[in-house]
Design a protein around this nucleic acid. Sequence first.
DNA 1: CGTCATTTGTGATGACTTTCACGGAACAAC
DNA 2: GTTGTTCCGTGAAAGTCATCACAAATGACG
Lengths: 211, 211
Amino acid sequence: MTFTEQHERRIPQRTIPRLSHYYRALLESREVQLISSETIAELTGYTAAQVRRDLAYFGQFGTPGRGYSVEDLKKVLLQILGIDHQWNVALIGMGNLGLALLRYRGFHEQGFNIIAGFDNDPRKVGQMIEGVKVHQMDELAEYAKRDQIRMAVVTVPASAAQAVVDQLVGVGVKAILNFAPVRLQVPGGVKIHNIDLAIELERLSFLAIHK
Amino acid sequence: MTFTEQHERRIPQRTIPRLSHYYRALLESREVQLISSETIAELTGYTAAQVRRDLAYFGQFGTPGRGYSVEDLKKVLLQILGIDHQWNVALIGMGNLGLALLRYRGFHEQGFNIIAGFDNDPRKVGQMIEGVKVHQMDELAEYAKRDQIRMAVVTVPASAAQAVVDQLVGVGVKAILNFAPVRLQVPGGVKIHNIDLAIELERLSFLAIHK
DNA sequence: CGTCATTTGTGATGACTTTCACGGAACAAC
DNA sequence: GTTGTTCCGTGAAAGTCATCACAAATGACG
């Protein structure tokens, strides 16, 4: 069973993280060969209808009366999420957050290989951390070309983020995960996803005092 | 001008982070006294109608024909977001991510004071990092009571997260920011917000290969 | 005071997302 | 075969959220 690109409908934004959760549920279900939408729902906390609808956006992967093949569905989800192959990732900004992400094992386990770090601080350049060497920013173009880097994680201060992103776009990076608390401009075709830790805490604060 | 609690309507989930963005835009507008929804929209990348609607969920803060008072609106947003006072926060799990968050200045700037760290690794217990002491987990109850800790950030491995959360709930913590990639059970009244870095990367991967 | 330009707050509309509910496909059992 | 059970895929309904568009409010100006 294979997933073949077929964009008939628009995919709801929130479907995508749910697919990741479904995939994790499948990883925990090695002993069974078939799994129902109801079981996936129980394991993930969503509803069975939601599971079926989300999967149906991408094709017909189940068998009525039986369920979904765990092995096949895992492959399909890997393909849909784009993690059926390795991503070479550059990490820009080797401050505390950058170091933490470099050491975070979760990335490598999902096929995201951080293959080079970049920083402008001379004290950090040249260091070897977790098997990853830290380079000066002006070496970015060289490595991006050589190692086909198409994804980057940005953990520089807000004031430097736009310039860094411009450089990344310039060397062909197509997807950027940005931790700097600032809205960044990118040309069409380049995807950017922002994680703002202060805003996440504020959201929690709001939840805690309301409702 | 003051915001008085009045929950007539349900607040859309996505309104809350937008409020944080509006607040940031106001911080950058010190020279002006009045600001229009149109200007806030330009600064944040949303639409003017969205800005007005979001604010209107909580009351009437503007003046027709004039706009919003920057000073007043800042106060209102601080109140709505619950960051008009300090939060005492416990940080559980002093691994790489925990250390990065401890050193991250953005938290303290928004009134989130990490006042104690906790870990079960004997090599970490007793250390002093960024002015914060690392304690054993079994000392949690004592500190939670003494310092009125009502919020916690959890950066322990997935396998330990539920036990940690149970302890936090037991000592009266009401809001938890969880970085462990696992779905956690909490009783009603306790708010939990999850950030899963691997899933965020998968979302980016999806965006990069589709559309 | 009347007119004009401006901008809020909100009813109405439209777009998007989730849930419901059921036809039909698949297989087991006899 | 036929019956019974299971469970997917999806049209339709319900629910949620964003945008439109305008009445009403405000102050400037003469």
